[in-house]
Nucleic acid binder design. Structure first.
Lengths: 173, 173
DNA sequence: GCTACTTTGGTACTAAAGTATGAATACTTT
DNA sequence: AAAGTATTCATACTTTAGTACCAAAGTAGC
Protein backbone atom coordinates (compact mmCIF):
# COMPACT_ATOMS: atom_id res chain seq x y z
CA UNK A 1 0.00 0.00 0.00
CA UNK A 2 1.43 3.31 -1.03
CA UNK A 3 -0.07 6.74 -1.23
CA UNK A 4 0.83 8.63 -4.34
CA UNK A 5 0.09 12.19 -5.25
CA UNK A 6 -0.66 12.62 -8.94
CA UNK A 7 -0.62 16.03 -10.52
CA UNK A 8 -1.71 17.41 -13.87
CA UNK A 9 1.91 17.27 -15.01
CA UNK A 10 1.96 13.51 -14.93
CA UNK A 11 -1.06 13.48 -17.19
CA UNK A 12 0.73 15.75 -19.62
CA UNK A 13 3.86 13.65 -19.43
CA UNK A 14 1.90 10.60 -20.47
CA UNK A 15 0.55 12.38 -23.51
CA UNK A 16 4.01 13.56 -24.57
CA UNK A 17 5.32 10.09 -24.07
CA UNK A 18 2.70 8.54 -26.31
CA UNK A 19 3.37 11.18 -28.93
CA UNK A 20 7.04 10.33 -28.94
CA UNK A 21 6.38 6.65 -29.56
CA UNK A 22 4.24 7.56 -32.55
CA UNK A 23 6.99 9.72 -33.98
CA UNK A 24 9.59 7.02 -33.48
CA UNK A 25 7.45 4.48 -35.28
CA UNK A 26 7.16 6.81 -38.25
CA UNK A 27 10.92 7.17 -38.24
CA UNK A 28 11.24 3.43 -38.45
CA UNK A 29 8.98 3.21 -41.47
CA UNK A 30 10.86 5.95 -43.26
CA UNK A 31 14.14 4.21 -42.50
CA UNK A 32 12.90 0.95 -43.94
CA UNK A 33 11.51 2.58 -47.04
CA UNK A 34 14.64 4.61 -47.63
CA UNK A 35 16.84 1.59 -47.26
CA UNK A 36 14.75 -0.37 -49.72
CA UNK A 37 14.68 2.51 -52.20
CA UNK A 38 18.40 3.12 -51.87
CA UNK A 39 19.37 -0.47 -52.40
CA UNK A 40 16.91 -0.77 -55.26
CA UNK A 41 18.25 2.39 -56.90
CA UNK A 42 21.84 1.29 -56.64
CA UNK A 43 21.07 -2.13 -57.91
CA UNK A 44 18.97 -0.66 -60.70
CA UNK A 45 21.84 1.45 -61.87
CA UNK A 46 24.13 -1.46 -61.76
CA UNK A 47 21.43 -3.48 -63.38
CA UNK A 48 21.27 -1.13 -66.30
CA UNK A 49 24.97 -1.57 -67.00
CA UNK A 50 25.79 -4.84 -65.42
CA UNK A 51 22.60 -6.76 -65.43
CA UNK A 52 24.02 -9.64 -67.28
CA UNK A 53 27.17 -9.93 -65.25
CA UNK A 54 25.69 -9.16 -61.88
CA UNK A 55 22.45 -11.04 -61.69
CA UNK A 56 23.69 -12.86 -58.68
CA UNK A 57 24.41 -9.69 -56.77
CA UNK A 58 20.94 -8.39 -57.50
CA UNK A 59 19.47 -11.61 -56.28
CA UNK A 60 21.45 -11.44 -53.04
CA UNK A 61 20.53 -7.82 -52.54
CA UNK A 62 16.85 -8.62 -52.75
CA UNK A 63 17.22 -11.44 -50.33
CA UNK A 64 18.95 -9.16 -47.87
CA UNK A 65 16.18 -6.61 -48.05
CA UNK A 66 13.49 -9.18 -47.72
CA UNK A 67 14.96 -10.82 -44.67
CA UNK A 68 15.75 -7.53 -42.98
CA UNK A 69 12.13 -6.56 -43.28
CA UNK A 70 11.15 -9.96 -42.02
CA UNK A 71 13.36 -9.53 -38.96
CA UNK A 72 11.89 -6.15 -38.21
CA UNK A 73 8.40 -7.52 -38.51
CA UNK A 74 9.15 -10.37 -36.13
CA UNK A 75 10.56 -7.97 -33.53
CA UNK A 76 7.54 -5.75 -33.94
CA UNK A 77 5.26 -8.64 -33.11
CA UNK A 78 7.22 -9.23 -29.94
CA UNK A 79 7.14 -5.67 -28.69
CA UNK A 80 3.81 -4.69 -30.11
CA UNK A 81 1.60 -4.94 -27.04
CA UNK A 82 4.07 -4.40 -24.29
CA UNK A 83 2.33 -2.22 -21.78
CA UNK A 84 3.35 -1.78 -18.23
CA UNK A 85 0.52 -1.16 -15.84
CA UNK A 86 1.25 0.54 -12.56
CA UNK A 87 -1.48 0.24 -10.00
CA UNK A 88 -1.66 2.93 -7.39
CA UNK A 89 -3.84 2.35 -4.39
CA UNK A 90 -5.37 5.34 -2.72
CA UNK A 91 -6.75 5.05 0.76
CA UNK A 92 -10.10 6.58 1.48
CA UNK A 93 -11.07 6.68 5.10
CA UNK A 94 -14.62 5.85 5.99
CA UNK A 95 -16.10 6.92 9.27
CA UNK A 96 -16.94 3.99 11.49
CA UNK A 97 -20.40 3.76 13.05
CA UNK A 98 -20.92 6.14 15.92
CA UNK A 99 -22.86 3.74 18.08
CA UNK A 100 -21.01 2.31 21.04
CA UNK A 101 -20.82 -1.44 21.52
CA UNK A 102 -19.69 -3.18 24.66
CA UNK A 103 -16.59 -5.29 24.37
CA UNK A 104 -18.18 -8.50 25.58
CA UNK A 105 -14.90 -10.38 25.86
CA UNK A 106 -13.30 -7.85 28.14
CA UNK A 107 -16.45 -7.54 30.21
CA UNK A 108 -16.62 -11.28 30.83
CA UNK A 109 -13.03 -11.33 31.92
CA UNK A 110 -13.88 -9.04 34.82
CA UNK A 111 -16.63 -11.31 36.11
CA UNK A 112 -18.64 -8.39 37.46
CA UNK A 113 -22.06 -9.08 38.94
CA UNK A 114 -25.03 -7.35 37.41
CA UNK A 115 -25.20 -4.84 40.24
CA UNK A 116 -21.53 -4.13 40.09
CA UNK A 117 -21.79 -3.43 36.37
CA UNK A 118 -24.69 -1.08 36.98
CA UNK A 119 -22.61 0.84 39.49
CA UNK A 120 -19.64 0.93 37.12
CA UNK A 121 -21.72 2.41 34.33
CA UNK A 122 -22.88 5.28 36.53
CA UNK A 123 -19.41 5.73 37.95
CA UNK A 124 -17.86 6.10 34.50
CA UNK A 125 -20.44 8.74 33.69
CA UNK A 126 -18.81 10.87 36.37
CA UNK A 127 -21.34 10.41 39.18
CA UNK A 128 -20.32 10.54 42.83
CA UNK A 129 -21.09 7.67 45.21
CA UNK A 130 -23.92 9.69 46.71
CA UNK A 131 -25.46 10.29 43.29
CA UNK A 132 -25.18 6.62 42.38
CA UNK A 133 -26.79 5.61 45.68
CA UNK A 134 -29.68 7.98 45.06
CA UNK A 135 -30.05 6.76 41.51
CA UNK A 136 -30.21 3.08 42.47
CA UNK A 137 -32.18 3.64 45.70
CA UNK A 138 -29.39 2.23 47.85
CA UNK A 139 -27.33 3.46 50.75
CA UNK A 140 -23.98 5.17 50.41
CA UNK A 141 -22.44 2.28 52.32
CA UNK A 142 -23.70 -0.19 49.77
CA UNK A 143 -22.26 1.79 46.89
CA UNK A 144 -18.90 1.98 48.59
CA UNK A 145 -18.95 -1.79 48.96
CA UNK A 146 -19.73 -2.29 45.29
CA UNK A 147 -17.13 0.24 44.19
CA UNK A 148 -14.53 -1.46 46.34
CA UNK A 149 -15.40 -4.82 44.82
CA UNK A 150 -15.22 -3.34 41.33
CA UNK A 151 -11.74 -2.03 42.03
CA UNK A 152 -10.56 -5.50 43.08
CA UNK A 153 -11.99 -7.15 39.97
CA UNK A 154 -10.65 -4.49 37.65
CA UNK A 155 -7.30 -4.35 39.40
CA UNK A 156 -7.38 -0.59 39.87
CA UNK A 157 -6.91 1.65 42.88
CA UNK A 158 -9.19 4.60 42.26
CA UNK A 159 -12.36 5.51 40.46
CA UNK A 160 -10.39 7.60 37.98
CA UNK A 161 -8.37 4.54 37.00
CA UNK A 162 -11.56 2.53 36.76
CA UNK A 163 -13.08 5.09 34.39
CA UNK A 164 -9.99 5.21 32.20
CA UNK A 165 -9.74 1.45 31.99
CA UNK A 166 -13.46 0.88 31.40
CA UNK A 167 -13.46 3.32 28.49
CA UNK A 168 -10.17 2.08 27.08
CA UNK A 169 -11.39 -1.51 27.04
CA UNK A 170 -14.85 -0.43 25.90
CA UNK A 171 -16.55 -2.01 28.85
CA UNK A 172 -18.72 1.04 29.29
CA UNK A 173 -19.65 3.85 26.98
CA UNK B 1 -8.24 9.30 -13.71
CA UNK B 2 -10.54 6.31 -13.77
CA UNK B 3 -11.75 3.94 -11.12
CA UNK B 4 -10.75 0.41 -11.83
CA UNK B 5 -11.73 -2.68 -9.96
CA UNK B 6 -8.87 -5.13 -9.92
CA UNK B 7 -9.21 -8.61 -8.59
CA UNK B 8 -6.73 -11.36 -8.01
CA UNK B 9 -7.51 -12.55 -11.51
CA UNK B 10 -6.21 -9.37 -13.05
CA UNK B 11 -3.05 -9.69 -11.03
CA UNK B 12 -2.69 -13.19 -12.37
CA UNK B 13 -3.47 -11.96 -15.87
CA UNK B 14 -0.62 -9.49 -15.64
CA UNK B 15 1.70 -12.21 -14.53
CA UNK B 16 0.57 -14.43 -17.37
CA UNK B 17 1.00 -11.59 -19.82
CA UNK B 18 4.54 -10.95 -18.73
CA UNK B 19 5.22 -14.64 -18.75
CA UNK B 20 3.91 -14.90 -22.31
CA UNK B 21 6.23 -12.15 -23.48
CA UNK B 22 9.10 -13.94 -21.92
CA UNK B 23 8.04 -17.18 -23.61
CA UNK B 24 7.62 -15.42 -26.94
CA UNK B 25 11.13 -14.04 -26.69
CA UNK B 26 12.45 -17.49 -25.95
CA UNK B 27 10.44 -18.75 -28.87
CA UNK B 28 12.08 -16.20 -31.08
CA UNK B 29 15.55 -17.21 -30.01
CA UNK B 30 14.78 -20.85 -30.53
CA UNK B 31 13.30 -20.01 -33.93
CA UNK B 32 16.38 -18.14 -34.96
CA UNK B 33 18.72 -20.81 -33.73
CA UNK B 34 16.72 -23.61 -35.29
CA UNK B 35 16.56 -21.82 -38.60
CA UNK B 36 20.27 -21.23 -38.57
CA UNK B 37 20.99 -24.80 -37.58
CA UNK B 38 18.55 -26.17 -40.11
CA UNK B 39 19.87 -24.17 -42.98
CA UNK B 40 23.41 -24.89 -41.97
CA UNK B 41 22.72 -28.60 -41.71
CA UNK B 42 20.99 -28.76 -45.06
CA UNK B 43 23.63 -26.74 -46.69
CA UNK B 44 26.32 -28.75 -45.00
CA UNK B 45 24.88 -31.95 -46.40
CA UNK B 46 24.63 -30.45 -49.77
CA UNK B 47 28.03 -28.98 -49.27
CA UNK B 48 29.47 -32.37 -48.71
CA UNK B 49 28.18 -33.55 -52.06
CA UNK B 50 27.61 -30.43 -53.96
CA UNK B 51 29.89 -27.91 -52.46
CA UNK B 52 31.39 -26.99 -55.69
CA UNK B 53 28.12 -26.63 -57.50
CA UNK B 54 26.12 -24.88 -54.78
CA UNK B 55 28.42 -22.32 -53.24
CA UNK B 56 26.05 -19.64 -54.33
CA UNK B 57 23.11 -21.09 -52.42
CA UNK B 58 25.16 -21.30 -49.26
CA UNK B 59 26.19 -17.73 -49.67
CA UNK B 60 22.59 -16.63 -50.08
CA UNK B 61 21.49 -18.60 -47.06
CA UNK B 62 24.04 -16.93 -44.86
CA UNK B 63 23.04 -13.53 -46.14
CA UNK B 64 19.40 -14.26 -45.30
CA UNK B 65 20.24 -15.23 -41.73
CA UNK B 66 22.51 -12.28 -41.23
CA UNK B 67 20.01 -9.74 -42.46
CA UNK B 68 17.17 -11.28 -40.48
CA UNK B 69 19.15 -10.89 -37.32
CA UNK B 70 20.09 -7.37 -38.33
CA UNK B 71 16.45 -6.49 -38.85
CA UNK B 72 15.49 -7.85 -35.45
CA UNK B 73 18.29 -5.93 -33.82
CA UNK B 74 17.27 -2.70 -35.48
CA UNK B 75 13.66 -3.16 -34.37
CA UNK B 76 14.86 -4.02 -30.87
CA UNK B 77 16.73 -0.74 -30.67
CA UNK B 78 13.60 1.07 -31.68
CA UNK B 79 11.34 -0.64 -29.21
CA UNK B 80 13.80 -1.24 -26.47
CA UNK B 81 12.98 1.67 -24.19
CA UNK B 82 9.54 2.35 -25.48
CA UNK B 83 7.36 0.66 -22.98
CA UNK B 84 4.04 2.30 -22.43
CA UNK B 85 3.27 2.91 -18.81
CA UNK B 86 -0.30 3.28 -17.72
CA UNK B 87 -1.03 4.47 -14.24
CA UNK B 88 -4.25 3.23 -12.77
CA UNK B 89 -5.58 4.52 -9.51
CA UNK B 90 -7.48 2.13 -7.32
CA UNK B 91 -9.54 3.42 -4.45
CA UNK B 92 -9.55 1.40 -1.29
CA UNK B 93 -12.05 2.08 1.44
CA UNK B 94 -10.67 1.44 4.88
CA UNK B 95 -11.49 2.24 8.44
CA UNK B 96 -9.63 5.26 9.76
CA UNK B 97 -6.45 4.68 11.70
CA UNK B 98 -6.92 3.48 15.23
CA UNK B 99 -4.57 6.13 16.47
CA UNK B 100 -6.24 8.77 18.57
CA UNK B 101 -6.51 12.29 17.26
CA UNK B 102 -7.37 15.30 19.34
CA UNK B 103 -10.56 17.09 18.52
CA UNK B 104 -8.92 20.45 17.92
CA UNK B 105 -12.19 22.35 17.73
CA UNK B 106 -13.42 21.19 21.13
CA UNK B 107 -10.01 21.75 22.65
CA UNK B 108 -9.86 25.34 21.46
CA UNK B 109 -13.31 26.01 22.88
CA UNK B 110 -11.98 25.26 26.35
CA UNK B 111 -9.14 27.72 26.04
CA UNK B 112 -6.88 25.69 28.30
CA UNK B 113 -3.32 26.85 28.80
CA UNK B 114 -0.53 24.50 27.84
CA UNK B 115 0.12 23.59 31.45
CA UNK B 116 -3.52 23.01 32.17
CA UNK B 117 -3.76 20.68 29.18
CA UNK B 118 -0.74 18.76 30.40
CA UNK B 119 -2.36 18.27 33.77
CA UNK B 120 -5.64 17.24 32.15
CA UNK B 121 -3.90 14.60 30.08
CA UNK B 122 -2.39 12.99 33.15
CA UNK B 123 -5.61 13.35 35.11
CA UNK B 124 -7.60 11.50 32.45
CA UNK B 125 -5.08 8.71 32.59
CA UNK B 126 -6.25 8.10 36.13
CA UNK B 127 -3.39 9.70 38.04
CA UNK B 128 -3.86 11.26 41.47
CA UNK B 129 -2.88 14.86 42.15
CA UNK B 130 0.22 13.66 43.99
CA UNK B 131 1.27 11.54 41.04
CA UNK B 132 0.74 14.39 38.60
CA UNK B 133 2.77 16.72 40.81
CA UNK B 134 5.61 14.23 40.94
CA UNK B 135 5.45 13.67 37.22
CA UNK B 136 5.63 17.38 36.34
CA UNK B 137 8.07 18.27 39.14
CA UNK B 138 5.57 20.62 40.79
CA UNK B 139 3.97 20.93 44.19
CA UNK B 140 0.66 19.35 45.14
CA UNK B 141 -0.71 22.83 45.72
CA UNK B 142 0.10 23.88 42.16
CA UNK B 143 -1.66 20.86 40.74
CA UNK B 144 -4.73 21.57 42.80
CA UNK B 145 -4.74 25.08 41.38
CA UNK B 146 -4.49 23.84 37.82
CA UNK B 147 -7.14 21.16 38.38
CA UNK B 148 -9.47 23.76 39.87
CA UNK B 149 -8.92 26.02 36.85
CA UNK B 150 -9.55 23.12 34.49
CA UNK B 151 -12.88 22.39 36.21
CA UNK B 152 -13.98 25.99 35.70
CA UNK B 153 -13.06 26.02 32.01
CA UNK B 154 -14.63 22.63 31.40
CA UNK B 155 -17.69 23.43 33.46
CA UNK B 156 -17.45 20.28 35.58
CA UNK B 157 -17.42 19.69 39.32
CA UNK B 158 -15.16 16.68 39.78
CA UNK B 159 -12.26 14.95 38.17
CA UNK B 160 -14.46 12.04 37.22
CA UNK B 161 -16.69 14.40 35.25
CA UNK B 162 -13.62 15.95 33.69
CA UNK B 163 -12.37 12.57 32.58
CA UNK B 164 -15.70 11.55 31.13
CA UNK B 165 -16.10 14.83 29.26
CA UNK B 166 -12.52 14.91 27.96
CA UNK B 167 -12.84 11.43 26.53
CA UNK B 168 -16.34 11.96 25.15
CA UNK B 169 -15.25 15.11 23.30
CA UNK B 170 -11.94 13.50 22.34
CA UNK B 171 -9.91 16.22 23.97
CA UNK B 172 -7.59 13.63 25.47
CA UNK B 173 -6.89 10.06 24.60
C1' DG C 1 3.16 51.79 32.75
C1' DC C 2 -1.00 49.21 33.24
C1' DT C 3 -3.92 45.23 32.74
C1' DA C 4 -4.82 40.49 32.11
C1' DC C 5 -3.21 36.07 32.13
C1' DT C 6 -0.08 32.17 33.27
C1' DT C 7 2.55 29.73 36.47
C1' DT C 8 3.92 28.49 40.90
C1' DG C 9 3.15 27.80 45.72
C1' DG C 10 1.31 28.00 50.60
C1' DT C 11 -2.31 27.53 54.42
C1' DA C 12 -6.65 26.12 56.37
C1' DC C 13 -10.71 23.81 55.93
C1' DT C 14 -14.51 20.80 54.16
C1' DA C 15 -16.12 17.10 51.35
C1' DA C 16 -15.68 12.89 49.15
C1' DA C 17 -13.35 8.74 48.33
C1' DG C 18 -11.41 4.63 49.93
C1' DT C 19 -10.29 0.84 53.48
C1' DA C 20 -11.25 -2.39 57.13
C1' DT C 21 -14.40 -4.85 59.84
C1' DG C 22 -18.67 -6.79 60.79
C1' DA C 23 -23.47 -8.38 60.08
C1' DA C 24 -27.90 -9.98 57.92
C1' DT C 25 -30.86 -11.93 54.25
C1' DA C 26 -31.98 -14.54 50.13
C1' DC C 27 -30.81 -17.75 46.92
C1' DT C 28 -28.05 -21.56 44.77
C1' DT C 29 -24.98 -25.44 44.96
C1' DT C 30 -22.85 -29.36 47.20
C1' DA D 1 -28.06 -29.25 56.32
C1' DA D 2 -23.99 -26.86 55.24
C1' DA D 3 -21.36 -24.05 52.20
C1' DG D 4 -20.97 -20.55 48.76
C1' DT D 5 -22.56 -16.31 46.40
C1' DA D 6 -24.92 -11.92 45.77
C1' DT D 7 -26.85 -8.02 47.87
C1' DT D 8 -27.51 -4.78 51.38
C1' DC D 9 -26.06 -1.96 55.27
C1' DA D 10 -23.46 0.07 59.28
C1' DT D 11 -19.37 1.99 61.79
C1' DA D 12 -14.78 3.85 62.31
C1' DC D 13 -10.89 5.49 60.29
C1' DT D 14 -7.48 7.16 56.71
C1' DT D 15 -6.50 9.26 52.42
C1' DT D 16 -7.45 12.13 48.65
C1' DA D 17 -9.97 15.62 46.42
C1' DG D 18 -11.78 20.10 46.26
C1' DT D 19 -12.48 25.07 47.86
C1' DA D 20 -11.18 29.61 49.51
C1' DC D 21 -7.85 32.88 50.18
C1' DC D 22 -3.45 34.83 49.60
C1' DA D 23 1.01 35.93 47.32
C1' DA D 24 4.82 36.50 43.87
C1' DA D 25 7.12 36.38 39.39
C1' DG D 26 6.97 36.42 34.46
C1' DT D 27 4.86 37.50 29.90
C1' DA D 28 2.08 39.65 26.31
C1' DG D 29 -0.73 43.26 24.54
C1' DC D 30 -2.44 47.97 24.64
Amino acid sequence: MVEVSLSKDSSKTTMNFLGNIFLKRRYFLVYGALMAVLIFALKWLEWKFLIVENSIDIYVGLVAVFFTILGIWVAGQLYKNKVQTVIVEKKIYVNPPVEFQVNKDELEKLNLSNREYEVLQLLTKGHSNAEIAENLFLSLSTIKTHVSNIFVKMDVKSRTQAIEKAKRLKITD
